[in-house]
Amino acid sequence: MELLCLEMDTIIRARPDPNLLCDDRVLQRLLTIEERFLPQYSYFKGVQKDIQPFMRRMVATWMLEVCEEQKCEEEVFPLAMNYLDRFLAVVPTKKCNLQLLGAVCMFLASKLKETRPLTAEKLCIYTDNSIRPQELLEWELVVLGKLKWNLAAVTPNDFIEHIVKRLPLPEDKLALIRKHVQTFIALCATDFRFAMYPPSMIATGSVGAAICGLQLDSADQSQWGDSLTDLLAKITNTEVDVLKECQEQIERVLVSSLREGRQQQQQQQQTQRGPSGKGLEELDQSSTPTDVRDVNL
C-alpha cells in the first residue's frame, strides 16, 4: 500500500516577531527554564534494562524519517525526542514497546506545534500496523501523565533565531545557515550523547558548526578570528571550553554519520542497482565528509 499525500502546502505561518526576537528578556527566560525539561537521568545506566542506546537511535532515525516524509515542522522531531527521553528516564520500557512510545511522542509534539497535526492512523501505518490507533491514544495518556503534562519544552530550535540575530552574519547566507543549524540539531537529537545537554548548548554548538562548516568565519578573519566561539558562548552564557567540545562533538557525529551512510549506500547498491540516479552523486560528494561545504543540505 502506498502512502498518498493529497495535502497542499498552504499552511499560513506567522512571521518572526521582532518583539520576541529582539528582546533580551525572552532569551534569558528561555535559558532560565530550559533545564526543567531535560531528562533526569542517563537512563541506560539505571532505569532501562531491556533497551540499549542503539535502539534509541533506531527509533529516533525512524521518527526523523516519518517527520520528514510528513513534512512536519522542524521542531516536531527534537521535541518528540525530548518527550521520549523524559519518559524513558522514569519508566522502564520494553524494547517491543519502544516504537509505540516513539509514535506517541511524535503524535504529541505534532499536536503541540502544528496546525495540521499527524493523525493516529497515519502514525500506526508508519509502524507497519504493529500498533493500533486505540493503543496509541491510550499510551498518549500514560505518556502525558509521566511528563506531568509539561509539553511546552524548550528545544534547541527555540534558540536559533536568538543566536543568529546576535551574530554579524551576511544577510544572504542566513537561510543557508539556518538550514544547516536545523540539520545539526536533528542529528544531535538522534544521538543519545546529546540527550542531557541543555538545548541552548546544542543550538549554540550547531550554529558554530554551521558557520565553521560553511567557512563563513574565515571570510573575514579580523571580524571573527578565534572569537566566534567566545561570542557564541557569551550569547547563551555557556562556558567556552564546554561549547568548543560540544561543537567538535557535533562535527564528529556528522562525519561518522556521513561515513556510515556511505557504507550503507554502497551495500545497498551492491545488492540492488541504484534505485535513484541521485544516489551515486550523493556518494561522490560525501566521500570526503570533512568539508561540510561540499555537503549540499
Partner: peptide, 13 residues
C-alpha cells in the same frame, strides 16, 4: 522551515 527541503546529511541515516 519544513523538513521537506532536507537534505543529504539526514538522508544518509
Amino acid at each position: 522551515r519544513t523538513m521537506a527541503s532536507h537534505n543529504r546529511i539526514l538522508s544518509v541515516l
